[in-house]
Write a protein that binds this DNA or RNA. Structure first.
Lengths: 154, 154
DNA sequence: GGTGCTATATATAAGTC
DNA sequence: TGACTTATATATAGCAC
C-alpha cells in the first residue's frame, strides 16, 4: 500500500524494518480497535518489536478481556450480569483502555529504559495469563448463552 | 474501505455485524502475519466472535515467542479437488492447524493447568511448519501473478 | 456460513523536514 | 524517532450467488 509494491518477506534494512513495524503496528492496533467497536468482539493484540530496544509492547484488550487482563478482576464476572449493565461496563472499559494506551505512549517518551521489562520470559508470563483468560471468557460466555436460551424474552 | 464510509460504532444489524467481523477478522489476521514476516516481530492475536459460538477465536503466535495456531472449522474448506493448487495448499494448512488445535484440546482435558500445553519447543515446531507453508503459498502466489503479467490474454 | 465482484475508503512506502 | 505529503497498493461495504 505504498509507492511501491512490497514483497512479504523480511525487510533487510534494519531502519526500514523498524519504520515498517512502527507504521504497520499502529495500523493493526487501529483495525483491532475498529473490529472491537464495530462488532462488539473481544480482541487481544500483542506486538513485540523486533529490536526490543523500545517498549514495543502494545496491548489492546477490549470487552470482557479488559476486565480479565487489564483490570485483573475476573471474579467479578463469574456471578453474571444483566446485559445492559455489562455493555455499559464494556464501553467504559474500552474508553479506559484508550486512556491507558495514550498514557503509555506518553510514558514511553520519558523513560526509554522500560523496554527491558518486556523480555521473552515476560512474554511467556503474559501468554499464561492469556490462556487462563481465554478459559474464563469461554466459561462466562457459555453461561451467558445458557441464560439466553432459558429466558423466554430473549 | 467500501462502497460507503462506515462510522466506527457498533453495527446494529446482527447479520451485517457478523459479516463485518468475518471480513475484518481475516484482514487483521493477514496484517498480523505480514507484520511478523516483514519485521521479524512476535505477534499474538486473539479474536472472539461477537456471537460467542463455534469458531469464536483465532490465535496467531508468531516468531520465537510462541507459535502459530489457527483455529478454524475444517468443514469450511471441504470441497472438490478441482480447485487451483493455491486453494488446496491453503486448505491443507487449515486442516493441519485444526489438527493441532484438536491435539491441544485433548491435552487440555488431561492437564488441569492449560498453560503447560504450550511448550516453546513444541510451539516452534508448529510455527516452523506453518511459516514454511505460508512461504510456499506466497511464492506460488507470486508465480501466479507473474504468469498473469506476462500473459497478454489475462 | 462461504464466494466473487466492483467502487470506494484506508493504509502505507518513499520521501522530506 | 515523529509528523506530514503523495502516489499507490490493499482492504472492504454492499451486493449477488
Amino acid at each position: 500500500m505504498g509507492r511501491k509494491r512490497l514483497l512479504i518477506k523480511r525487510i533487510d534494512n534494519p531502519c526500514s524494518r523498524q519504520i515498517a513495524y512502527s507504521k504497520r503496528g499502529k495500523g493493526i492496533l487501529k483495525k483491532a480497535t475498529e473490529l472491537s467497536t464495530l462488532c462488539g468482539a473481544d480482541v487481544g493484540l500483542l506486538m513485540f518489536s523486533p529490536t526490543g530496544s523500545r517498549i514495543s509492547f502494545f496491548v489492546i484488550w477490549t470487552g470482557m478481556m479488559i476486565s480479565v487482563v487489564l483490570v485483573r478482576k475476573p471474579e467479578t464476572f463469574e456471578g453474571g450480569f444483566d446485559v445492559p449493565l455489562l455493555e455499559t461496563l464494556e464501553r467504559k472499559l474500552c474508553e479506559l483502555n484508550w486512556k491507558i494506551y495514550e498514557a503509555q505512549e506518553k510514558m514511553r517518551s520519558y523513560s526509554p529504559d522500560v523496554s527491558n521489562i518486556y523480555s521473552i520470559a515476560e512474554a511467556q508470563h503474559h501468554q499464561q495469563f492469556v490462556t487462563k483468560a481465554i478459559q474464563r471468557i469461554e466459561k462466562f460466555k457459555k453461561t451467558k448463552l445458557l441464560e439466553k436460551e432459558t429466558s423466554p424474552s430473549l
